[in-house]
């Protein structure tokens, strides 16, 4: 199954950390959405400026370049928390109990390893664009109006850093689950039963329909 899953909570340290991080992730998610809205406003300002004021928005393309990472990366951990990144679950969906948690641990660990490497790589990418000695600390700038690019590049290792913490919490959750066995692990995305989710979804859609 692709997305929706739920995360169980209790009073343990793991669960408290999970919820604390989730609050941060949600804020990042909203910022990411607001950046989309900003893209739209940017285009309207650009068109209106040109047609009505003969004053096109200078550096329209440059600003888009700066806004895109906000949209693309800030929400990565938010999506991971709820199990939102897509996958095939033909094989893993057949497993139950400890076997399932071991399987989840392995792929989550591989993801963690990738993210750690990418924190290194994207930090280096940021590092090449940043120079304390240069004006605006910039060693890489946008084409039209020369905006420094380093803040946008810095966003990537930062977002990946939070993703790394999220993955560590999930790994911890899977270790606990492997120890305890059963089907009620804390702090990791679960595939809810179809009936539970259908009820939830129906409620969501009807609230939207007004």
């Amino acid at each position: 199954m692709a997305g929706s899953s739920a995360v169980l909570e209790d009073g343990s340290a793991l669960s408290r950390l999970d919820r604390a991080l989730y609050r941060v992730e949600k804020v990042f998610g909203v910022i990411s959405g607001l950046a989309v809205l900003m893209l739209m406003v940017l285009a309207v300002v650009s068109v209106a400026g040109r047609h009505f004021f003969n004053a096109p928005l200078p550096g329209y393309v440059d600003w888009i370049q700066i806004a895109m990472p906000l949209i693309a990366f800030l929400g990565i951990s938010y999506a991971q928390r709820d199990g939102g990144h897509i996958r095939m679950d033909i094989v893993i969906g057949k497993l139950k109990g400890r076997a399932l948690w071991v399987g989840e641990f392995i792929t989550t660990f591989a993801t963690f390893a990738l993210i750690v490497l990418l924190i290194w790589g994207s930090w280096a990418h940021f590092g090449r664009s940043f120079d304390f000695g240069a004006p605006n600390w910039s060693r890489d700038s946008t084409i039209d109006i020369g905006l420094p690019i380093w803040p946008a590049k810095l966003l990537v290792p930062v977002a990946f850093g939070i993703m790394g913490i999220r993955l560590l919490l999930q790994l911890w959750g899977y270790v606990v689950a492997i120890g305890k066995g059963g089907d009620k692990p804390i702090g990791v995305p679960l595939m809810k039963s179809a009936a539970e989710l259908a009820a939830e979804e129906a409620e969501h859609v009807s609230s939207l329909d007004r």
Binding site: A134, R139, D140, S141, I143, P148
Partner: peptide, 16 residues
Amino acid sequence: GAFEMAQFCAGYHEDK
């Protein structure tokens, strides 16, 4: 060091 030779244009990134 990913590749040994490359082309680029100076105006793409003045700060570089």
